[in-house]
């Protein structure tokens, strides 16, 4: 693999750029809206309006529909694109757009810059917890009669806090949730994302049969374990976990692999496609 070394940081850099641009949208938007009444782009990742095109976060929409037991067509239409993305590409929102993951990655990079020796992930819980937090969130919302994730969701809170700061020159108390999530990230990378994010749970559920997967080429892999150490979710791509339900397709493992054994693949048939030969090189 002569060129493998050179392309090493490809996906990591692209991802950081995408995350930065996505963060820029929610960072700049309130200013545009507030000071110049420029309303073309609006909202944040709970509901984003670009002109007449609306995006609604699937979990928030689902909670709204389930709890109020009413159907509103524009809401469903707004959920359509995120749901389709999740169906085909999996949890890419989490890895590539979510402001929480962006802040966590910045935190990771800052630590690396400060040369803080980082232990391995301290607290590990069963990965299945993700499903339970999704079910628990929806159940709790239906019992309470008010959706919870809509005002305590860290991804949404980042946007809300920026908007609060711009509009009302104050920060809401619930922003501490974001601080807590970022603090937990110091101990276990993406602790909240891994186990507790109901939105991540829903997107992972939608992405169970996703087409885009990080696939390992058995012949090229020599089980060095680098990918396992890189994975922010603590998955082990060399054991095929990148093709499993919890992977969010961030591509960090693809970059980490020195042997080109891991790569994105468009898998039309999820089962038994792991044996395809490594393409190119």
């Amino acid at each position: 693999m002569p060129s493998a070394k050179k392309e090493n940081k490809k996906y990591n850099s692209i991802r950081l750029l995408v995350q930065f641009l996505a963060f820029l949208v929610i960072l700049v938007n309130p200013f545009l809206n507030y000071y110049w009444h420029f309303n073309f782009v609006q909202g944040w990742y709970q509901s984003l309006g670009v002109g007449k095109l609306w995006f609604v976060s699937p979990l928030e929409g689902l909670e709204s529909v389930l709890v109020s037991k009413t159907i509103y067509l524009p809401l469903l239409v707004g959920m359509l694109i995120p749901v389709l993305v999740a169906l085909f590409l999996g949890r890419v929102f989490c890895a590539w757009i979510c402001p929480i993951n962006f802040l966590c990655e910045l935190e990771d990079r800052l630590l690396r810059l400060l040369r803080v020796k980082r232990q391995r992930d301290l607290f590990l819980l069963p990965k299945r917890l993700l499903w339970f937090s999704l079910i628990g969130d929806i159940t709790l919302a239906m019992i309470l009669g008010a959706p919870l994730f809509v005002f305590l969701s860290p991804p949404g809170l980042v946007g809300r806090e920026i908007m609060m700061a711009v509009y009302f020159h104050t920060l809401a108390v619930e922003g501490l949730v974001v601080v807590a999530v970022l603090l937990l990230n110091l101990f276990t990378r993406r602790f909240f994302c891994r186990y507790f994010c109901p939105l991540g749970g829903l997107l992972a559920f939608l992405g169970l049969k996703r087409k885009l997967r990080v696939v390992r080429a058995k012949e090229a892999c020599n089980a060095c374990g680098l990918c396992q150490r890189t994975c922010p979710l603590g998955l082990s791509p060399q054991r095929g976990e990148s093709e499993g339900p919890y992977c969010w397709n961030c591509g960090a493992c693809v970059d980490s692999c020195r042997f080109g054994a891991l790569n994105y693949r468009w898998v039309s048939d999820p089962a038994g496609q792991t044996d395809i030969l490594p393409r190119g090189e």
Binding site: N33, Q42, S64, V67, R160
Partner: peptide
Amino acid sequence: PAKCIRCGRCAEICPYRSIKILDVR
């Protein structure tokens, strides 16, 4: 409270800043 997803877009678009967003209290 069941239906609103707290996206805050009404407050963002309000040109008179009439709409305020409640906090967790």
